[in-house]
């Protein structure tokens, strides 16, 4: 059974890689938000530099995952795990890209007057960071209940995003000189909203890994179901 043990090692290695990648994505996300809140251009530059590492990890994980699919023809929980890791790697890569977008906004915001963004942005940033962290934790713990809780929070972020949009629209209409600034803040808000979506995807992947239930596009029903059985 030496071959099977080798497969176990390969699976463990793939999981370690996705966790390393998740750690990098979380770090990029935190740094980009910190650079935004502190108007820290140096930190924003660091975020731009580090994105390459995440991109490289996505390629490595995809290659390894496809290799395992081709050579091991995994079934059941192994199949679910490997296919979901492949999806997670692309979601984590996009979280990295959104962090880069935020960092780029930070750099462009240097040429605008230093105005405090709407406080909702802080709330969104906090929730987005938490959601990504909790999604990765839910994966590590194989905890579908924690994953369902993440799906619920996505709605909160969406409401914040709508609210930020209305506030900024009002500011920009009242003061056209604030338009460049307002557009950048709007972009930051939209990127945070997308990051929350990526965390939601990962949470859905975790539910599939553990329970083999596809809950994508039926999140409302899942929340109800989990509420009923919890």
């Amino acid at each position: 059974m030496a071959m099977e043990r080798h497969f176990e090692h390969q699976l463990a290695d793939l999981q370690n890689r996705i966790l390393t990648m998740a750690g990098l994505a979380e770090e990029q996300l935190r740094s980009s938000i910190k650079s935004f809140l502190d108007r820290d251009a140096d930190l924003a530059h660091e975020v731009l530099e580090s994105d390459r590492r995440i991109d490289a990890m996505e390629n490595e994980i995809d290659e390894e995952g496809i290799h395992l699919l081709a050579t091991q023809q995994p079934m059941a929980r192994d199949l679910r795990l490997i296919t979901m890791i492949l999806k997670m790697s692309s979601d984590l890569e996009r979280i990295g890209d959104h962090a880069v977008n935020v960092a780029e906004s930070v750099l462009r915001l240097r040429s605008t007057p230093a105005v405090e963004p709407p406080p909702e942005i802080n709330g969104m940033a906090e929730i987005a960071i938490e959601m990504v962290k909790d999604a990765v934790d839910a994966f590590v713990e194989r905890d579908p209940k924690a994953a369902v809780a993440i799906l619920r929070r996505d709605d909160v972020v969406d409401r914040y995003d709508d609210s930020v949009f209305r506030v900024l629209l009002t500011i920009m209409m009242e003061n056209p000189r604030r338009i460049s600034w307002g557009m950048e803040i709007l972009l930051v808000s939209r990127n945070l909203e997308r990051i929350a979506d990526m965390a939601t995807n990962i949470a859905e992947d975790v539910i599939y890994i553990v329970e083999a239930r596809n809950v994508k596009h039926h999140a409302g029903e899942v929340v109800l179901e989990a509420g009923g059985t919890a």
């Binding site: 079934m75 059941a76 929980r77 199949l79 679910r80 083999a212």
Partner: peptide, 11 residues
């Protein structure tokens, strides 16, 4: 059976 077996032995 192949994506979500219910019985431990099958899995």
């Amino acid at each position: 059976i192949f994506t979500n077996p219910r019985v431990r032995e099958t899995e």
